[in-house]
């Protein structure tokens, strides 16, 4: 019985998450469209509401092209790794009042580990394509992941110290009265930037830098395989947003709202996460792209020392 309940839980959450993945790109196109003095998708359905469905159908029916010189097994596996790592991360996110598929004691570590595995998909995809542009994209990605993984992890150490736990539900419960955002402001800043770099979004979208490397690691991918990379990127965005909400902005905590009653916690969580996703889009519409070496020096010379400093200061304050 418990197993069945678990299965139903997984099914519901993953289905909703898949719909989210489908529609978050519609959301992005609309948001960026209006920021850029245009309308975004308007043709398929009312205000283009069916555009994601049309896109998904198109991608399903596209020819599956595999370069003849590619390393076929790795070429097959790479996008799948990405999307599995992205989607399975959602298991530990406490969506509402300790409701998560798996309430792990090492939730943060689990997320960090899986997001590192996710970047393997990019590295392997870039390598397996046997194209120089893909190869450069893969190399950039590995360098970027190594640099920003560290600052991302370090920025969360402060939070773990304050909550005294790596369990995400405990972290949210520890923020019942005040968010960690204010005592951990530096960590929050480091986390925000590292999360953008971790998910390969503008201004750190170097692995796929369209105007330099054509499409970077995804140059040789098309159709559904490419769509899996795409899904992995957007899943990563959701995960990083919810991690930010859980660790710094009080998770589901918030005043009770009229009409929804006890479900207001869930609503608060969703609102906060979408606020972050909106922030991602906003950044994309605003900023130019960093150069590879500038990205690296930013990571190693600024963010890692800042995050370390934050850990030390938090430690001192805890001891006092």
């Amino acid at each position: 019985m418990e197993l069945l309940l678990m299965f139903v839980k997984i099914l519901v959450v993953v289905t909703i998450f898949m719909i989210h993945l489908l529609y978050v790109q519609y959301f992005e196109r609309k948001v960026i469209g209006h920021m850029q003095a245009r309308m975004g998708p308007m043709r398929v359905g009312w205000h283009g509401i069916l555009q994601p469905v049309a896109d998904a159908l198109k991608l399903f029916f596209k020819e599956d092209i595999i370069p003849s010189q590619s390393d076929r097994p790795i070429f097959f596996v790479a996008p799948i790794i990405g999307v599995i790592a992205g989607v399975s991360t959602i298991a530990v996110i406490p969506l509402w009042k300790s409701f998560s598929i798996a309430n792990l004691n090492i939730g943060i570590l689990y997320i960090l580990a899986l997001s590192s595995i996710g970047s393997f998909s990019i590295i392997l995809g870039g390598w397996a394509s046997n194209s120089k542009y893909s190869f450069l994209g893969g190399l950039r990605s590995s360098a970027q992941v190594i640099s920003y993984e560290i600052s991302l992890g370090l920025s969360l150490v402060g939070v773990m110290m304050m909550a005294g736990s790596a369990n995400l539900s405990d972290i949210v419960n520890a923020q019942a009265n005040s968010w960690f955002l204010f005592p951990q402001l530096i960590a929050f800043f480091v986390f925000l930037v590292s999360a953008i770099a971790e998910t390969n979004r503008v201004p750190f979208d170097l692995p796929e830098a369209e105007t330099e490397l054509v499409a970077g690691f995804a140059t040789e991918y098309s159709g559904m395989r490419w769509a899996l990379f795409f899904m992995a990127e957007y899943a990563g965005m959701f995960i990083m947003s919810s991690l930010a909400v859980v660790c710094f902005m009080g998770g589901w905590n918030g005043p009770e709202l009229p009409l929804v009653g006890e479900y207001s916690g869930l609503l608060w969580f969703v609102l906060k996460v979408y606020g972050f996703i909106f922030f991602y889009f906003w950044i994309r519409a605003t900023l130019p792209r960093y150069r590879y070496d500038q990205l690296m020096s930013l990571g190693w010379k600024i963010f890692i020392p800042l995050a370390l400093l934050n850990v030390i200061v938090t430690g001192f304050l805890r001891v006092l």
């Binding site: 850029q36 003095a37 503008v202 201004p203 979208d205 105007t211 994309r284 900023l287 130019p288």
Partner: peptide, 16 residues
Amino acid sequence: HALDIGAMTVFLYCFR
């Protein structure tokens, strides 16, 4: 030029 460097919005403003 802006699009090449990654600033996408300038592109559409200029085209207006």
